[in-house]
Nucleic acid binder design. Structure first.
Lengths: 198, 198, 198, 198
DNA sequence: AATGAATGAGGATTCATTCAT
DNA sequence: CATGAATGAATCCTCATTCAT
């Protein structure tokens, strides 16, 4: 009866879906719960979305795009090699550490991606953007390794029951970035500072 | 009607549960589907297990133990530093690459662990065993980084839609192991240097 | 967006409704499916028709009129007694045999008519026209019997899983038409013999 | 809470399903309505039947068997040719005329059969039994024609809005049975003359 | 005049769980 | 000890219809 015209409803439902997944997992993300979270009648759900699969896809698509954009923002803000290293450190130790929500959503997405190609495609695009952002400061090989390292450190730190210090992270990043740097000159893409210390 | 006395039934159900998760995800793992997969009457499910949560927990417990054991076997077989490097390479590039099932189960477990402490505990124990196995050939810090690197490389290789060569993996392992290795002598087999244990 | 002014839309919807019934039965004939079949917005449905009942009625009205007209055409083309017999044979063996669509729609209509008077009225009118057409070549009694015979043969041939030869049909028509024919002279075209009108 | 053990429940549901179809048509035969009619919880429906399709099939299977049995009883009671004619007359004029329920169910079945082979099979079996019963008193050809005639007369009498006298029926039966009877002697009970079997 | 947006009721089905046997 | 029968809650989705535009 209230709210008949509500143009942002679709968006609100997608956001609500992410909230529900963060709280109950994909397994607990039902039309009913999402509708309640978005304060929308149940019938709206299948009016706005083909089915729960489409909603799930759109939700994770939005999430992966937001995460990629966040990563890009972090990396683009770094104008020197040192700042890039620093940015990586912050990304690994702070960003995910702070947000339980992101952590959950990321792994729910991965679980889906492991079984279903359309979600794997989302991961692929996300990784592509992360790598491209890293390649502004690092060569392609290093970018790829750094991204994988970030992935692994983040996951293990989050899923451990014991706290990790940041020292391991710092050390890991150094090993990965220092080792190959002297022989092969960094690509001038984005023209990072020639100095490679730290 | 046939098998009334069936002592391995509980075990069979747990294994069937993992199969079902691998095929349908945790979201699709219902009593009915697991019972069907285990060829067991539906009533058995709540007779043998408190509820679906207990079954899920036992299934992932078994899975994580099996995986940890597999990792240990791989690493224990390596008696030299070079063999250890080689083992890591194989673990990262072959093991998970081959088994879609393990990949899915791992990420389903992580998704659960991100939300629920009891599953995080499983991850913690699994990581602990992996690290201990690595510490037979590497110092504690390197072990931890190697494990994280393996985690990240494995995940990203599996969830990408494009194939990765093994070159990146080789390079990554080298960077992580070479850099710190010369100054600190490798711990001898079975006794990680006390200063670096967690 | 395209066709705003579309005077034949109502007609198109009615035809589409018959198509949907032929494919999904009355049970499966929903506003949505008909709208899709007619390539018309869902909102059109209740704009052009009071409700689904009205649409159903109009669809079957059209269908029964078309069928009656077809029957009349067949019979009117027969100018002799022999041609009339031949026409009946063709109607029973060819027409319905060929069209799965007509068969389905006929029985869906009958099923409705068995429960609801307004649809029974349609059947009544259809039968009336058929009989009138037959009475151009047969006395009223024979016309009625022939029509019923046609009904029964058609139904049983169509709903059997084994093919019927045409021999039975020929024989049946002969029995029904021959027996009473010798004593009472065939009525001349358009005026059934008064003695036998009902 | 009440009635946990109720061995005839399945049967009761099937009967209730036929009642609901007779009242609301196949289109209106929902799990809910049938469950209510059978005084059974909704969850029972899919416990006892694979789905609504299976229930529909079982209901019409039962109906067609009951009808065939009724027809057989009528015909088997007739021991002479004259009694058989009389039986046919009663079947056509009384039986269906009396029961709105049978009429509706018959045509709902036919509507289904027109679209779906499994229901056509039911019709085929029903017809087979009717014909076999007729062949105890009539030759095969006559049996078939009589059955078709009965079908058509029954249908048209029921779906007309005006009453039919019995005279037409008597006449029709006579025409069909008299014509071929003199030359070929009636087969004695149980063994139709071989020359006329199909 | 026409329709896209919206919705509550009801559609079939699946669910975890209970319980009598 | 084990299970087949049973069920009410909840699943996703479709429905006819309403209504603001």
């Amino acid at each position: 009866m209230a709210r008949r015209h509500d143009p942002e409803r679709r968006d609100r439902i997608i956001d609500a879906c992410l909230d529900v997944i963060a709280e109950h997992g994909v397994a607990g993300a039902s039309h009913r719960r999402v509708a309640a979270a978005a304060d929308v009648p149940l019938g709206s759900m299948t009016y706005h979305f083909e089915g729960i699969d489409e909603l799930l896809y759109l939700a994770f698509e939005r999430f992966s795009i937001q995460e990629a954009a966040h990563f890009e923002r972090r990396m683009h803000a770094a104008t020197t090699f040192e700042e890039a290293i620093e940015a990586m450190l912050r990304i690994t130790t702070e960003d995910v550490f702070d947000s339980q929500r992101d952590l959950i959503l990321t792994h729910e997405l991965y679980a889906l991606a492991a079984r279903r190609p359309e979600f794997r495609e989302l991961c692929h695009r996300w990784m592509g953007r992360s790598r491209a952002a890293l390649e502004r400061q690092f060569d392609a090989r290093t970018a790829r390794i750094l991204d994988a390292l970030n992935e692994g450190l983040t996951t293990q730190r989050a899923l451990d029951t014991q706290p990790w210090g940041t020292a391991v992270v710092v050390d890991a990043i150094q090993r990965v970035t220092r080792s190959r740097q002297p022989p092969s000159p960094r690509p001038d893409d984005g023209s990072p500072s020639p100095a490679q210390s730290r």
